[in-house]
Design a binder for these strands. Structure first.
Lengths: 123, 123
DNA sequence: GCGATCTAGTCTAAAAAAGAGACTATGGAG
DNA sequence: CTCCATAGTCTCTTTTTTAGACTAGATCGC
């Protein structure tokens, strides 16, 4: 067993390495992009259409970050018009597991959240 | 087993109700704030110090949203100096389950992500 | 042949969001 | 009497995001 470093609890402090990961996946579009890639490889415009309300610039940036962090793989086909395909790496796929747990929770609870919002409004 | 509603697949499209939830929890600070509240009720400045690099304005906004959506409860004590405490609701606590799965994944994989980033830089 | 169209992005200018720091009222410590 | 602490909000500045124009070269209609 590897020596566990003195890390008594999950501290949300700024130094924590988990923070670096959380900041990335919690950037509004990353989760959506990864979810869209669950079904298989997709092209840039395909992702753009599927996600719907993301701008090309943000999609571009998000994909770049995800590639950088090893979640997805980018393949360029030297054709005209250009073709670029994005797909999940092994790590990206492994991330789907907790992500889907989160989505499942959201799915089960969005009604409760909606009613909480309405309740709040009327006050 | 409850009747499954006709939901052929998780579409990440803009209309999906899950999106509303995801947009909220994926706003950079919500996850951190909820994580900080895991240990019990906390005061405003206490959260501010613990999270560290959040501004008071963003913490205020995040807390307001989380309260609005029923994740947390806000209690004001009419004292001077003012005292306000935040704590997770039942729903908020139930959210910790998938959130911790996510944090666990991040914890297991942050090394791989870091090395992917470095590999990318050198190219 | 000739222009329109498709692709994956990038660039720019304008709009929105976030950050830093001052400010509020009140009571207690020194 | 002066300074600190509390939970925010307000304003001003800086950063981020958006919308839309632009690129190159093959292919389509005509």
């Amino acid at each position: 067993m590897p020596a566990k470093r003195d890390e008594p609890k999950q501290q949300p402090g700024a130094g924590c390495p988990v923070r670096g990961v959380l900041d990335r996946i919690g950037d509004q579009w990353s989760l959506l992009t990864l979810a869209a890639l669950e079904e298989g490889k997709k092209r840039f415009n395909e992702l753009l259409r599927e996600i719907g309300d993301i701008s090309k610039q943000m999609l571009s940036k998000t994909l770049k970050h995800l590639e950088q962090d090893g979640f997805i793989r980018r393949t360029v086909y030297p054709e005209v018009p250009p073709r670029v395909e994005y797909e999940l790496t092994e790590m990206g796929r492994s991330f789907l597991v907790p992500m889907k747990a989160l989505i499942g929770w959201a799915d089960r609870n969005h009604a409760a959240i909606k009613s909480a919002r309405q309740r709040y409004e009327t006050v």
